[in-house]
Amino acid sequence: MMESKVKIVRINEKLPISFPQNGAAGKTGSWRLYRPIVDNNKCTKCFLCELYCPGNVIETRKDGIQIELDYCKGCGICAKVCPQKAIEMVPETVEVKIA
């Protein structure tokens, strides 16, 4: 509807803005009490988990998903929403067997 012309003029002053980047708040994976274990053989690639993940740490791939454990806080929402039950939450305190 309108022509939108705006010129961004950078100023050498402190502004209340920040530039988000990976790990700006540290490696939040250390907060985790439960670890998501993914079975990509069960994955139908609906990627609901990616949509629901509040930490934006699920990467979608051709063969399923990969969760970035450096930042995953272990909330378990992905496991809850997965229709195939392809994600299992296991306590971080015990040894787990990784397939």
Binding site: P16, S18, P20
Partner: peptide, 27 residues
């Protein structure tokens, strides 16, 4: 023409985050 110091269209930014007392005062 319209001028401004940043824009949510041009930049990937978050605005108004928690900031230290010193940085806040400097703003």
């Amino acid at each position: 023409e319209r001028k401004q110091p940043y824009s949510v269209v041009e930049d990937r930014i978050s605005i108004g985050n928690l900031t230290s007392p010193e940085d806040t005062e400097e703003i």
